[in-house]
């Protein structure tokens, strides 16, 4: 099920994140890349170099927007200025779908600039789903929400993270950006089976998949995006592809970024799993 209504009926393959250290390589050498993911906030500007570079990229490549500060899970209303700027960028990139995180990060107009985990309550799911619907109606583009990695769980939670994800996406009728690295990181930090999570995700709603590297510390794992993808995450990815079918996949590498070729080669390791048979669940 590569193409569905949550990714604009597209069948994108393996992509990588567009990052500043690779601009020159991409513009000069024009490598063959199926698509780039951009961080929306980096281009929600009035002018200057970032937008000029983006326009040159758009002349040659397909681009999908990924946001980090919509904060669907914050109790406060959506930021209208944010939405206005985001819509202008959507028109510019013609992104077939748009993603942001299933998290919160602002309260009373103050921003933490972090992806804070949700309390898994029915009230939070209802508020979050309503905000996703509002954003989609304003932006007029399919939206998929991404599961975040987390380091804390809250006493007031009423369900598991994947049950909460289901509540939100059903309530919002939106897609899922399934981050298998985040599932692995959270499973290690909170002591659940990552395969229970994967098996609990509604496969038909998965619009896109993220893979990335992480860092192990003595007592917890941190989602650092500064390493190649580790074996347990590749195994989860293989399982995810068996469940949801070949799906647009994006490698995130955001810190200690190596050469473009190294990042691209790491991303293309995902190709070996794309063709594996899909297991239809009963």
């Amino acid at each position: 099920m590569p193409a569905n209504r949550f990714n604009g009926q597209t069948d994108f393959g393996i992509g990588i994140g567009l990052r500043v250290p690779h601009y020159q390589h991409i513009l000069e050498r024009r490598p063959v890349v199926d698509w780039f993911e951009i961080i929306s906030e980096n281009y929600m500007l009035d002018g200057g170099r970032p937008l000029a570079i983006l326009d040159r990229i758009l002349e040659q490549y397909r681009v999908v927007q990924h946001g980090v500060s919509m904060y669907f899970g914050s109790a406060e209303p959506l930021n209208r200025e944010h939405l206005r700027r985001l819509k202008a960028l959507v028109k510019r990139t013609k992104t077939p779908w748009l993603t942001d995180h299933l998290c919160w990060g602002s309260v009373d107009g103050r921003y933490t600039h972090d992806l804070l985990p949700m309390p898994y309550t029915f009230e939070a799911a209802e508020i979050t789903a309503r905000k996703v619907r509002e954003a989609r109606d304003f932006l007029e583009v399919p939206i998929a929400v991404e599961n975040v990695s987390s380091y804390a769980e809250f006493h007031i939670s009423e369900m598991t993270e994947w049950e909460f994800l289901n509540e939100v996406v059903e309530g919002a009728d939106c897609g899922i950006l399934l981050d298998v690295n985040n599932i692995y990181v959270s499973s290690q930090n909170h002591g659940f089976d990552p395969y229970d999570y994967l098996n609990g995700v509604p496969a038909e709603r998965v619009a896109q998949i993220h893979i990335a590297g992480h860092s192990k510390f003595e007592k917890y794992i941190l989602d650092t995006h500064d390493h190649p993808v580790l074996d347990p995450v590749w195994k989860l990815y293989e399982h995810a592809i068996r469940r949801v079918g070949p799906t647009a996949t994006l490698l995130e590498w955001d810190d200690r970024i190596p050469s473009f070729d190294e990042v691209h080669a790491e991303a293309r390791k995902a190709e070996q799993f794309i063709g594996i048979p899909v297991v239809v669940s009963q």
């Binding site: 914050s74 109790a75 406060e76 919160w104 602002s106 309260v107 009373d108 103050r110 933490t112 804070l116 309390p119 309550t121 009230e123 939070a124 508020i127 809250f154 007031i156």
Partner: peptide, 11 residues
């Protein structure tokens, strides 16, 4: 909302 109060405390 309970969510707003909760988020104020965490933030």
């Amino acid at each position: 909302t309970n969510l707003l109060e909760f988020q104020r405390r965490v933030a």
